[in-house]
């Protein structure tokens, strides 16, 4: 009977109940998720404003901005794609029809989650506030979004700056993109991956055009 017992135990031990697939077989390329407001008339906008830096979300309470050559390559990718969709970059934040804000999660200390009540940046004093763009009181995401937070995520929000202003008004984010799995290892290759992810975000958003 001991032999039988050992046989049964061995059989159970050798084969764990569920065999999870090997995620090492995944290609380690980026994940690109885009969301958009179905009610937005994307062809009604003409100009967009894009700051010359990317906000770094890290573990420091003071905001930091990424402005070096690699950041410019990523920013240029957004400008190139928006221009290809017949939008014109504006140097004037106050008169532009659209705004684009880019954020990179370098550390998850302040990054608690990102869902349809997108207050994940509340604890982060440096995050883009609606007040950066004008006289708006709140953010508004007209679609449900949920992303798992992780280091190495690039977030892009496209904002409708023609929305009515006021302290009790909401500033709508009519399109956003989440790109993750980026910027680890060789910086040059990672930036190339990031630029490709930006291009993919536009490829899978054909409605985003004038």
């Amino acid at each position: 009977m001991k032999k039988l017992f050992y046989l049964l135990v061995a059989a159970l031990a050798v084969t764990a109940c569920q065999k999870d697939p090997d995620t090492d077989d995944l290609d380690n390329d980026y994940l690109v998720i885009t969301n958009y407001d179905k009610a937005a008339a994307f062809n009604s906008f003409t100009t967009f404003y894009l700051p010359d830096s990317i906000l770094l979300i890290d573990d420091k309470p003071e905001p930091e901005y990424w402005k070096d050559g690699n950041a410019q390559l990523i920013i240029d990718a957004f400008v190139r794609n928006m221009t290809a969709r017949n939008y014109t970059r504006s140097e004037n934040r106050e008169t532009a029809d659209l705004g684009i804000q880019l954020s990179y999660v370098q550390n998850t200390y302040y990054f608690l989650g990102y869902n349809d009540s997108p207050y994940w940046w509340w604890g982060y004093p440096g995050y883009w506030g609606p007040g950066y763009w004008g006289d708006w009181g709140y953010w508004y995401y007209p679609y449900p979004v949920y992303y798992s937070y992780s280091t190495g995520s690039l977030l892009a929000d496209l904002i409708n700056l023609e929305a009515p202003q006021g302290a009790d008004q909401k500033l709508p984010v009519i399109w956003n993109a989440f790109m993750s799995g980026l910027l680890s290892g060789s910086a040059q290759i990672d930036v190339a991956l990031t630029v490709r992810a930006v291009d993919q975000a536009f490829v899978q958003s054909p409605y985003l055009t004038k």
Binding site: T23, D25, N35, Y143
Partner: peptide, 17 residues
């Protein structure tokens, strides 16, 4: 590239199980 709800699109590779 696949739809992820009616307002969302996703590009990735996957392991199905």
């Amino acid at each position: 590239t696949l739809p992820n709800g009616n307002q969302s699109t996703m590009t990735t590779d996957q392991q199905h199980s």
